[in-house]
């Protein structure tokens, strides 16, 4: 179990970092999405891995329970990273339509840019 989760987090992170370092917007977005998946699984595991246990105390017996806090954290993290990815997609679409290029690196500001004054 631990090995499986650890390998999955590691593979997702490695892939995410590799893709984030590319220079096209699409691969960078996929890379950041992979990174956020990795961190969600990682956060989920941070309370310790437990199979088949409820995330709540039971007053009817000595039943073990799994830590509920990481689940709440993951939920928050998923919502936020989802929203952020949506914003990123919109802005990169905007940048693509405006500049006709999906590269995320910036050229040296040319001497005669017409856009730089408001």
């Amino acid at each position: 179990m631990e090995l499986l989760v650890a390998t999955a987090v590691g593979a997702l992170t490695a892939g995410g970092i590799y893709l984030t370092l590319r220079k096209r917007a699409f691969t960078v977005i996929i890379g950041l999405a992979l990174l956020s998946y990795a961190v969600n699984v990682f956060l989920f595991a941070s309370g310790g891995l437990a199979v088949d246990m409820p995330p709540i105390l039971s007053k009817y017996g000595e039943q073990a329970y799994t830590d509920p806090l990481p689940q709440a954290l993951v939920l928050t993290a998923i919502v936020i990273s989802f929203g952020m990815t949506a914003v990123l997609v919109m802005v990169s679409l905007g940048a693509y339509f405006e500049t006709q290029s999906d590269r995320v690196d910036m050229d040296e500001a040319p001497e005669d840019v017409e856009e730089n004054t408001p």
């Binding site: 984030t20 950041l32 990123l88």
Partner: peptide, 22 residues
């Protein structure tokens, strides 16, 4: 306000900060 340079700089800014959030 838009503009080519600004949108591209904004895209970079978002990417850096998303990586930072992760």
């Amino acid at each position: 306000g838009g503009g080519k340079q600004r949108t591209r700089a904004g895209l970079q800014y978002i990417i850096i900060n998303l990586a930072g959030s992760t």
